[in-house]
């Protein structure tokens, strides 16, 4: 579902904005016991032009910025190394750095009886 959405979105974006520069933002991922923290470098972006989507195992970022008189479109689809709770994902934009914190969904184990 996410992959299909991504392809459809990307194609649509290219059709609508063929003249702009589409770039992949620099990013880093840090994984701790309870959460995944992803930071994207998106200089020139403000909150109103930012769209972040979260699913169980991926984050999609799209944003538009004006930098040095040019329009720049940031686009990044990140496959996460583990499942997260998309309802509890938080995001913060500070000085052109977008920080996304995604709580890791604990894995549920149940005892399997052996016949």
């Amino acid at each position: 579902m996410t992959e299909r959405w991504y392809i459809r979105y990307h194609r649509t974006y290219w059709e609508v904005h063929p003249e702009e520069e589409v770039v992949e933002p620099l990013m880093e991922i840090r994984v701790s016991d309870k959460e995944i923290k992803i930071c994207f470098d998106v200089p020139g972006v403000d909150k109103s032009s930012l769209d972040v989507q979260a699913s169980d195992n991926s984050i999609v970022l799209r944003a538009i910025a004006r930098i040095g008189g040019r329009t720049v479109i940031y686009f990044k689809h990140v496959n996460l190394p583990m499942e997260i709770d998309p309802e509890r994902v938080r995001a913060r934009l500070t000085s052109g750095v977008l920080e996304i914190v995604a709580p890791i969904r604990p894995r549920g184990f149940r005892k399997v009886s052996v016949e």
């Binding site: 933002p25 620099l26 020139g44 930098i67």
Partner: peptide
């Protein structure tokens, strides 16, 4: 010029 510098230097940063 911070935003321009950050944008231009992406590839060197990689």
């Amino acid at each position: 010029r911070s935003e321009v510098v950050r944008h231009k230097m992406r590839e060197l940063m990689r």
